[in-house]
Design a protein around this nucleic acid. Structure first.
Lengths: 221, 221
DNA sequence: GCCCGCTTTCAGCGTCGTTTCAGGCTCGAC
DNA sequence: GTCGAGCCTGAAACGACGCTGAAAGCGGGC
């Protein structure tokens, strides 16, 4: 899962970014409306946190442009002003959720997770692979017998994305776009290496290779 | 499915080409309006991605020439300028869809797929062959009883093209033009070989031979 | 500053998809 | 019936792609 934060307050932005990174997301941070609007239009994010009071270009204008271009990425709006009117305006511009400053990081997290879940295909309520269940909060695998298997950050990000798109051919490009943040565009075989590790954890049959096309994750064999 | 990209930005063009290849299309790339216009006029594409800001000849002129010549290939226009006026002008010149730069690769893909689906003569919601259904997301065959049969990249491309043109005589030349790229000048019997493999998967009666003319795909016997 | 674990790179190897080829078969024309 | 072109078939060669294990690179924590 790859997120974009558009926030001009550098302190707040960095704090959020750090937190979300720790939660296992790939995160890009933009400090103004121009950058943010451009990134959101060209990179495939799974959700966006958008501040309304931005230099360069107002947050609402950025959002309206995305929506006009048919970009339906889930957007959570963030603003100091939390009056009734702003909220309505934000939602009308195409926002999916709204959070007034100041706020608890925990609440932001919860709302983001809700957005991501809502956008995911309906079928995946629980993310499973055979006897294993992915615990998102703790970033680890839990077996039905209670046994635990910890994951590294990258293993977790890749596995979560695979699990959210089961039974679908996912190209290595697409995977690396969603596992890494902006500077990505890798000509390397990192994805192959991590696929190998996930296979050794979950069983090789969970991740099929489609030669020349990508990988397919199977929650049931 | 065979696509043409007319795009002067070499980086963007190559990136798109690579992506679309990976998605299982055969892709030709032209860097200016002259080449692009010529290719589009002489080769049988299933869809075209056309940049408007081209050296040599303006994209809109290219499009107008195709349309004037009766070429009705689906065209998706791509442009940096995304003003209201350009959009109208593009659509009036005969474009089928319009995407402003910058854009998501994912969105371009989705729109292309929509165009290709819309353009298919008999818009079969599902592509079937007897008990089999072709699942595009998974690039595999699914039987009514849930059993799956995976396809290689080439098998998938050929079968998809056959299924999109059922009950129609398709010459080997035409098939190979749509399964492979432009420069692929084949004097070989690859198509015969792949037809054989599809027959062994779907049942020989699905693909009839018309001696000296080509093949006919039958979704129902 | 040093250590440790995570991440990334790399090269060699094996596998699989693709293509070629040769021989045999079938169909249609005469 | 004969002939030839076009098509089918099985196997084998080729090359690209993915797999693998090890080692280097990197960064955070102590």
């Amino acid at each position: 899962m790859r997120l974009l934060i558009v926030e001009d307050d550098a302190t707040l932005g960095e704090r959020l970014r750090a937190r979300l990174l720790r939660e296992g997301y790939a995160v890009d941070l933009a400090a103004d409306g121009i950058d943010g609007g451009h990134l959101g239009a060209t990179e495939p994010y799974d959700a966006v946190v958008l501040d309304l009071g931005l230099p360069g270009k107002p947050g609402l204008a950025v959002l309206r442009e995305w929506r006009a271009a048919g970009n339906e990425v889930p957007v959570l709006i963030l603003t100091a002003r939390d009056g009734w009117a702003e909220r309505v305006e934000g939602l009308q511009a195409g926002a999916d959720d709204y959070l007034g400053k100041p706020f608890h990081e925990e609440e932001l997290l919860a709302r983001l997770q809700a957005l991501l879940r809502r956008a995911a295909p309906v079928r995946a309520l629980e993310m499973r692979a055979g006897e294993w269940r992915l615990d998102e909060a703790r970033q680890c695998l839990v077996a039905d017998d209670g046994h635990e298997q910890t994951l590294t950050a990258t293993e977790f990000r890749l596995l979560r994305y695979l699990m959210r798109h089961p039974d679908e051919v996912l190209s290595k490009t697409r995977l690396s776009e969603h596992v890494y943040d902006y500077d990505a565009e890798r000509e390397s075989n990192v994805i192959e290496v991590y696929v190998r590790r996930l296979r050794s954890l979950l069983g090789a049959e969970r991740i099929e290779t489609r030669r020349g096309q990508g990988y397919v994750f199977r929650s049931r064999s």
